Amino acid sequence: MIKAVFKKKRDNIVSFNIKGHANSAEEGYDLVCCAISAISITIANGITEVAKVDADINTEDGFLSLSLEDKNSEQIHKCQCLMETMLLGLKSVEKNYGEYIKVLVEEVE
């Protein structure tokens, strides 16, 4: 199962991490995994390449994290449309394939 955790601070998403594998089909044919990967990598690239915010990004097999926690409020605000779009996209996948992905939103201080 894939677990996606978004952290919000004062109504702004400041980070996310996605961990695991969907295992909804054999490797190379797992559409849930492909959808999650496409959404998350596109958003990460949008933040760094389009919004031009140097986010802290870590990737490994079955893991992607992005953090804006050390950025100023202007940079965090600049990324909110992309971060909220990502949350919406993953929740949409969860609605249809909830046995393979869990999306959580946590409030942090």
Rank of each mutant, 00 (worst) to 15 (best):
T85A: 15
Y100E: 12
K95S: 14
K7S: 00
M83L: 13
V14S: 15
L64R: 02
K19T: 12
V5F: 00
S15W: 06
S37A: 09
L88N: 15
V5Y: 02
D30K: 03
I13C: 01
V5I: 12
G62H: 02
I57E: 06
K78W: 09
K95Q: 14
V53E: 00
E99C: 08
E27G: 01
D30N: 10
K19G: 04
D54P: 11
V108W: 10
M83A: 01
S37K: 01
S67P: 11
K9D: 11
V14N: 14
I101M: 12
T42N: 15
S67E: 11
E94W: 05
N17V: 08
E49K: 12
V93D: 10
G62A: 03
S67C: 10
V105F: 09
D61G: 08
C34Y: 00
N17F: 11
T85G: 14
S40R: 05
I43F: 06
S40P: 06
T48L: 15
V53S: 03
K3D: 14
G46Y: 08
G20R: 05
D30F: 04
A35I: 04
Y97M: 09
G28F: 12
I39G: 03
N23G: 07
N96K: 08
D30G: 01
S73R: 09
V32S: 00
S65L: 08
G98P: 15
E49T: 12
V105S: 14
E49M: 10
L82D: 06
E109A: 10
V50D: 08
K52T: 10
I43L: 12
K9Y: 12
D70T: 15
N12K: 11
D56N: 12
N58I: 08
S73Q: 14
E84T: 04
K8F: 05
I43S: 10
A4Q: 06
A25K: 04
G28I: 05
H21V: 09
D30V: 06
E94V: 08
C79Q: 01
R10M: 10
M1V: 08
N72G: 12
S37H: 01
I18Y: 01
C34P: 05
I39D: 05
C34E: 02
K71G: 07
S15Q: 04
S15I: 03
A38I: 10
I76F: 01
V103L: 00
V93S: 08
E107C: 10
K71M: 13
V103M: 02
M83C: 02
G28W: 11
I36T: 09
D30L: 05
D61H: 05
N96D: 13
Y29Q: 12
C33V: 02
S92N: 08
K19H: 11
T42R: 06
K102E: 15
N17I: 02
A55D: 13
A51F: 10
A4Y: 07
K9S: 12
G98E: 15
E74F: 10
V32C: 01
I36Y: 06
F63H: 11
I47M: 04
V5A: 01
S24C: 01
N96C: 05
H77P: 00
K71Q: 14
V103T: 07
L82I: 03
V32Q: 00
E49N: 13
E94R: 05
L87M: 07
M1R: 08
D54V: 04
E60S: 14
T48F: 15
C33N: 04
A51L: 11
Q80H: 04
I2V: 06
E107Q: 15
F6W: 03
L90Y: 00
E60F: 07
